[in-house]
Design a protein around this nucleic acid. Structure first.
Length: 748
DNA sequence: AGCACGCCGACT
DNA sequence: GTCGGCGTGCTC
């Protein structure tokens, strides 16, 4: 004890910081809470926000100049920074945003910076490329393909790379290389021009004429863009009300004002068709940003964004974390989508971070949705967000007639899931040659397989989950875990007792297909699930078959709820409307309402009147009643009342702690240790409460045992500060993890 | 996050 | 005797 005290005293002397040497604090894109100190070489000047390269450990790292306040560090340890990287400095608004994201989500500052840097290659020295210009050639003597090459090079009057020439001339690179070999083309290095901004003009291709209602909303948004101040506006418009066209007007204004515009979409919505729509409207291709980009696309995209050359960026949530120098507007489309929540690495909600960034950058933010999240509705009610409504459907489409089947009164045979009423509706549509859609949010054939002799159930070896039986139309059946992807072939006999009494239990879409085929042997059926849809090409085929009326009944999972419009579809049958309420987490009702509303909306989008039928065991629930009456506001009102009554978000703050490790024993021990020093108010009306630890609903996930704790606090409590303080008191042993999830969406 | 250092088991 | 497992601690 005594020796330790002595050692710490001797280590604690004040280092004298040399007056001549300049020091900077540089934040590194690694999981550290604080920046590191470096010496600035003589004759080098750096500004706050500059991107620099520094030695770190025995490698080099990029980093960002974070402050000039020298720390008391042993001068012998301090290294010299290497160079300033030739990219625009991170703005002060962006640096504030990074710090805010780190603080709000209880994530290390450096980890947040890592998301912003995201592509090391973008900062590497730009390699000079070898280009070619036209040499001495006698055009008359050339082959047709070589003439094309000559034309291309005459047209541009600047050196191009081999690939570039080949692409522009529509010849193979062999043609170009052969010409180089014959000295017809001459080598010339391609210069990189800093700050090069391509010629760019906003086209006003408004083929779409706005209605008065749309015009009014668009004008409000345009004036918010011209004001160039922070605001958050909910653009609340039912499906088909032309929300996109309305926010396009605001985008056009921001682009004309010379600002960068960011549009955030849930990952799944990012399609080439949508890009084409932006192209048609603005006359140039937007810059794409999502997880599917190739390294080269990422590198180029990052550079263009950071230099301000990319003007319109359409991306997934991660696009929010990039260093835009001139951001003027953020649009979050499908604001209510849970896909905006990032669950791995730094946990954050893209929509909420977008609102925060709008505040830091002092620019307007537009949240667009046909069914806004309750958080957003709440923020509109308490005046934090503005709201613009587009209540009318454009064109002639009307809402479907909606009804329910009370499944408690149905007497269905074993292995049957379609009620008499459901079959009647399907028959009616078959007779009228209209299309029907059966919706069941369950992939595969059966969610559980058990042995009738010994009771054995097939379970995932690495997760607390049953294996789902899949029976493809050709090939062998297999059992799969939908959480980790584990897959094994389905055996004929029980692996435990060897009897051939294996029984699939419950319905999946594949099994539903069997029932439909049996009941309607002449119906043409199409499956639309992530397992059966295959690649993009096959998906396109299925879609066009449906559009051409070659399909009578579509059977699908959640994937059909988004994006597809089938003109001949007039009936939607929901096989199990209660499925989404399972687990009963905070947002189960909200999610179920939104999804079912969206699915029902697939029926009758054109001149034909649509019908929707829900099979449910809870016909009196708030969800079912609101669906029947097409009363979204009523649902929001009742659901908000319920949340206020039980003091859950948005009326309180919530965060989750997920403790994980290799054995249940050690995980439980650590969770107990955390519980022992949890920040809790005793008393009648506590400001902060901690629930748990409880084993996660999926105790085992990918071979990791997980326990959860839930922190509930009043809105005025700084829950992040409480959590930071809390977990700093507990040492997490190696091999174990404590993940903080502020505003959790997943409770698994 | 990487990476090295360090201390224990099965092998040429 | 050595190669290599991954636990622990450090990086300005």
């Amino acid at each position: 004890m005594f020796y330790h005290a002595l050692a710490s005293i001797s280590n604690n002397y004040q280092y004298i910081v040399s007056m001549e040497k300049k020091y900077v604090q540089i934040l590194l894109p690694k999981p550290f809470e604080v920046p590191f100190q470096y010496e600035v070489p003589e004759n080098v000047t750096v500004e706050l926000g500059d991107v620099v390269e520094v030695p770190f450990g025995r490698k080099y790292s990029f980093g960002v100049v974070w402050s000039f306040e020298a720390q008391n560090i042993d001068p012998a340890k301090v290294k010299k920074m290497v160079r300033r990287v030739d990219t625009p400095a991170f703005t002060s608004a962006f640096r504030k945003f990074i710090a805010w994201v780190s603080n709000y989500n209880v994530a290390p500052l450096g980890s947040v910076l890592n998301m912003a840097i995201s592509v090391n290659a973008a900062l590497e020295l730009i390699k000079l490329k070898t280009g070619y210009v036209l040499g001495d050639v006698d055009v008359k003597q050339l082959t047709a393909k070589r003439k094309l090459v000559v034309e291309v090079l005459r047209g541009v009057n600047q050196p191009l790379t081999v690939q570039d020439i080949a692409m522009r001339a529509s010849v193979s690179d062999a043609v170009v290389r052969a010409m180089i070999g014959k000295d017809m083309l001459q080598e010339q290095e391609i210069d990189f021009v800093e700050g090069f901004v391509p010629e760019f003009s906003v086209q006003d291709n408004t083929a779409f004429v706005l209605s008065d209602e749309q015009k009014e909303a668009a004008d409000v948004l345009i004036s918010k863009v011209t004001d160039a101040k922070n605001s958050t506006t909910l653009l609340d418009g039912v499906t088909g009300s032309g929300k996109t066209e309305v926010y396009f007007e605001a985008i056009a204004q921001a682009l004309t004002d010379g600002k960068q515009v960011l549009i955030l979409l849930p990952e799944i919505t990012l399609t080439t068709q949508l890009m084409a729509r932006f192209y048609d409207r603005f006359g140039f291709m937007p810059t794409n940003w999502h997880s599917g980009l190739t390294p080269a696309q990422r590198r180029e995209g990052w550079r263009e964004i950071a230099r301000g050359e990319a003007r319109l960026i359409v991306g997934a949530r991660s696009a929010l974390m990039l260093p835009y120098p001139e951001l003027g507007l953020i649009v979050v489309d499908e604001e209510h989508e849970a896909a905006f929540k990032q669950e791995d690495g730094v946990v954050y909600h893209g929509r909420d971070m977008a609102v925060a960034r709008g505040f830091m950058e002092n620019i307007p933010v537009i949240l667009a949705s046909a069914s806004p999240s309750l958080e957003t509705v709440f923020n509109v009610q308490n005046g934090k967000y503005d709201c613009l409504q587009l209540p009318n459907r454009f064109g002639v489409a009307t809402l479907p007639d909606t009804s329910v089947v009370d499944m408690r009164l149905e007497k269905l045979g074993a292995r049957h899931w379609l009620s008499a009423r459901m079959k009647e509706e399907l028959t009616l549509n078959l007779d009228n040659k209209h299309q029907s859609l059966l919706y069941l949010n369950r992939r595969g054939y059966a969610p559980l397989t058990l042995c009738r002799t010994c009771g054995h159930r097939f379970q995932c070896p690495t997760c607390t989950a049953w294996l789902v039986l899949h029976k493809p139309p050709y090939g062998h059946g297999y059992l799969q875990c939908h959480h980790c992807g584990h897959r094994e072939s389905a055996p004929k006999t029980c692996p435990k007792c060897d009897s051939d009494t294996l029984a699939p239990c419950g319905p999946g879409v594949e099994r539903l297909q069997e029932e439909v085929a049996e009941a309607f042997p002449h119906a043409r059926i199409a499956m639309m699930t992530s397992d059966t849809i295959g690649n993009l090409e096959r998906a396109q085929k299925t879609v066009s078959a449906i559009e051409n009326g070659e399909v009578d009944i579509i059977i699908g999972t959640q994937m059909i709820a988004k994006g597809y419009n089938f003109p001949k579809l007039t009936f939607v049958g929901v096989v199990d409307a209660d499925l989404g309420l399972e687990g009963g987490d905070l947002r189960a009702a909200e999610r179920t309402y939104q999804l079912l509303h969206q699915v029902a909306g697939r029926a009758g989008r054109y001149e034909l009147k649509g019908r929707a039928l829900f099979q449910t065991y809870m016909p009196d629930s708030i969800v079912m009643q609101a669906l029947l009456e097409h009363d979204r506001d009523q649902f929001n009102e009742k659901e908000l009342q319920r949340r206020a009554y039980s003091s859950v978000p948005p009326y309180s703050r919530m965060a989750a702690l997920i403790i994980s490790g290799k054995t249940e024993k050690e995980v439980y021990a650590l969770a107990k240790q955390l519980a022992a020093c949890a920040p809790m108010d005793r008393g009648a009306n506590p400001k902060i409460r901690v629930l748990g630890p409880a084993p996660a609903p999926m105790l085992l996930l990918r071979n990791n045992y997980r326990y959860r704790m839930l922190i509930m606090a009043k809105r005025e409590v700084n829950i992040q500060a409480a959590i930071r303080d809390w977990i700093s008191h507990v040492k997490v042993p190696s091999g174990m993890k404590v993940k903080v999830d502020v505003d959790p969406y997943s409770f698994m």
